[in-house]
Nucleic acid binder design. Structure first.
Length: 426
RNA sequence: GGAGAGUUGGCCGAGUCGGUCGAAGGCGCUCGCCUGCUAAGCGAGUAAGGGGUUAUAAAGCCCCUUCGAGGGUUCGAAUCCCUCACUCUCCGCCA
C-alpha cells in the first residue's frame, strides 16, 4: 500500500510509475475521495471538540448544582451528536472506499528498474554455469520422472485433481534432501529457520499484498482461512503490528513450507510436467531491514539463492524484471532462471524482491532506535531459495545420463545417505 | 466441545457506586548534570494513528480518535450492558 499523503503530493510521479507498470488505477476517484475525506474529518472533529468542551462544562455545572444550565447544554450536545452521527456514517463510507482503492495500487518501482512492457524487456545481469551438452537425446522430466519411478502424475490426479503430483521412492527422498540441503546452507549464511502454519487468515494475506486483489489465486477453506501461496506470507507477518529495535535488524529468516496456488488464469501454460502445479514445496527467504540497507540486502539475498544453484552445479541466469513484469508488492525484483533441457531455455526457479515499505505499511512493521524520534516503517524483502519442485526437475533433467539413470549432485549425496545415482526402476 | 478467569502505553503493572484518566508507579530508552574509569546518583523527556497550522525540511503548536474488536446506555465510558476474537486454568476428545 502506498501512503495516501504520498500519492496526493506526488500525483504525477505515481501516475508515471503506474504507466510504466502498465497498470490502470483510478486517480480521479482517489483525488475526489481523499479531498472529501479530509473535509469531513475537519467538520466532524470540530463538532467533537465542541461536544467535549460542553460535556466538561456540564460536569462542572452539575457539581455546582446549576441544573437548568446543565440541561440546556445537554440539549445542545444531543443536537451535535445527531450531526456527528450523520457525518460519521458518510466519513466511514468514504474511508472504506479510499482504503480499498489504496489497497489495490501496486508498489512504486525503484529508480534502477528498467522500464518495459513484459518479460521480453527484462534485463539479464549475469549468467553462470554451462548448460550440459548431451551426446544423446535428453528426456523431459515428465517422461524421465515416471520412467525412474520418482514422479507419478496420474496418481496425483487420482488423489486430488489435475496439477497435483506424487513423488515416490528416490523422488520423495531427493525432494527431502533438497529441502534439508537448502535450509542448512541458508542457516550457514545467517538465516534463522522457522516452521510455520500452512494456513493464514485474511489479515495476514492482506499484510503481504495477496488480498484483496488476488483472492482468485488462493485456495480458501470453509472457515475463511487460506492455504498459503508462499512462506513469505507467514515469515513477513511474523512481525506484523510490531515495533522492532534497529540494532536487531536486519532480520534474516528462512522456512520450508508447502505452497498452494489456484493458478487461476494460467490454464494452458506449462501444462506438462510439474513446473506449474497447485501444490509445491519451497524454501523461502525473508528479510526485514531498514531503508538504508534494503537494496544491499536484496543483492545479498539474490546471492544466497544463486549459491544453492552454484552448489548444485546447475546453469542459470539472473535477470532484473522490468516495470511491466514486476509483482504487485515489489519495488525491484530479480528472477533467477535455471537451465531446463526440456524447455531448451532458462526457467524461473527463484524470485527475489525488495518490497520497500509497501508491505510494512499494510502490516504495520516498524522499527525504532535508529537515531530518530519515534518509529519508522521497515523494509521487507522476500525470495525463493529455492522452489524445491523446480529444483528437483532441474536436477533430474540436467544430470540425466544415456542409460536413463540420473547422477546425484555431490552436494546432495550426504542428504541421500551417500547414494550417487538414481537408477531406472525395474 | 463444556466451565471459569483475563485482554491497559516498548515491557511490567495500577485504575469500576461513569466526569478532574491517554491513563499512577516501575522497567527500558533519550537528553542533560554529577563523576579518575565503570557502577551508582540527580533532573527533564518518552504511546500510536489521523486532521489542521507552517515554506508539501525538521521541530513545535492546536484538535480528534484509540485502554482486545464491534455495538449499546449516557451530555460524558478504560470504568456499566451486549456480541465476537484471543490468552490462561480445569474437564472432555485426540496425533
Amino acid at each position: 500500500m502506498l501512503d495516501a499523503k504520498y500519492v496526493r503530493e506526488n500525483l504525477d510521479a505515481v501516475r508515471a510509475a503506474m504507466a510504466d507498470r502498465g497498470e490502470e488505477w483510478d486517480f480521479a476517484t482517489f483525488v475526489h475521495l481523499d479531498g472529501e475525506r479530509r473535509d469531513l474529518i475537519g467538520e466532524v472533529e470540530s463538532r467533537q471538540a465542541r461536544r467535549n468542551e460542553a460535556s466538561k462544562q456540564i460536569g462542572a455545572l452539575m457539581k455546582d448544582g446549576k441544573r437548568d444550565e446543565a440541561e440546556a447544554l445537554k440539549e445542545e450536545v444531543r443536537l451535535i451528536n445527531e450531526q456527528i452521527a450523520a457525518e460519521d456514517a458518510h466519513l466511514a463510507q468514504v474511508e472504506a472506499e479510499l482504503e480499498h482503492l489504496l489497497l489495490t495500487i501496486p508498489n512504486m518501482p525503484h529508480e534502477s528498474v528498467p522500464v518495459g512492457a513484459d518479460e521480453t524487456d527484462n534485463v539479464e545481469v549475469r549468467r553462470r554455469g554451462t548448460p550440459p551438452a548431451f551426446d544423446f537425446e535428453p528426456i523431459a522430466h515428465w517422461d524421465l520422472g515416471p520412467a525412474l519411478g520418482v514422479i507419478d502424475f496420474e496418481r496425483g490426479v487420482k488423489l486430488a485433481k489435475s496439477r497435483f503430483v506424487v513423488l515416490g521412492n528416490d523422488g520423495a527422498r531427493l525432494n527431502r534432501a533438497l529441502v534439508n540441503f537448502m535450509l542448512d546452507e541458508h542457516a550457514k549464511r545467517g538465516y534463522t529457520e522457522w516452521a510455520l502454519p500452512a494456513l493464514a487468515n485474511e489479515e495476514t494475506l492482506t499484510g503481504t499484498g495477496q488480498l484483496p486483489k488476488f483472492e482468485d489465486d488462493l485456495f480458501k477453506t470453509s472457515e475463511g482461512l487460506y492455504l498459503i501461496p508462499t512462506a513469505e506470507v507467514q515469515l513477513t507477518n511474523l512481525h506484523r503490528g510490531e515495533v522492532l529495535e534497529a540494532d536487531a535488524l536486519p532480520l534474516r529468516y528462512c522456512a520450508y513450507t508447502p505452497c498452494f496456488r489456484e493458478e487461476a488464469g494460467s490454464a494452458g501454460r506449462d501444462t506438462r510436467g510439474m513446473i506449474r502445479v497447485h501444490q509445491f514445496d519451497k524454501v523461502e527467504l525473508v528479510k526485514i531491514t531498514t531503508p538504508e540497507t534494503s537494496f544491499d540486502e536484496l543483492e545479498g539475498m539474490v546471492g544466497d539463492a544463486e549459491h544453492i544453484l552454484d552448489a548444485l552445479g546447475l546453469a542459470y541466469r539472473t535477470v532484473v524484471l522490468c516495470t511491466g513484469d514486476m509483482g504487485f508488492s515489489a519495488a525491484k525484483t530479480y528472477d533467477i532462471e535455471v537451465w531446463l533441457p526440456s524447455y531448451g531455455d532458462y526457467k524461473e526457479i527463484s524470485s527475489c524482491s525488495d518490497c520497500t515499505d509497501f508491505q510494512a505499511r499494510r502490516a504495520a512493521i516498524k522499527y525504532r532506535g535508529g537515531g530518530f524520534k519515534g518509529s519508522r516503517l521497515a523494509h521487507t524483502l522476500n525470495g525463493s531459495g529455492l522452489a524445491v519442485g523446480r529444483t528437483l526437475v532441474a536436477v533430474l533433467e540436467n544430470y540425466q545420463r544415456a542409460d536413463g539413470s540420473v547422477l546425484i549432485p555431490e552436494a546432495l549425496r550426504p542428504y541421500m545417505g551417500g547414494q550417487e545415482v538414481i537408477e531406472p526402476r525395474g
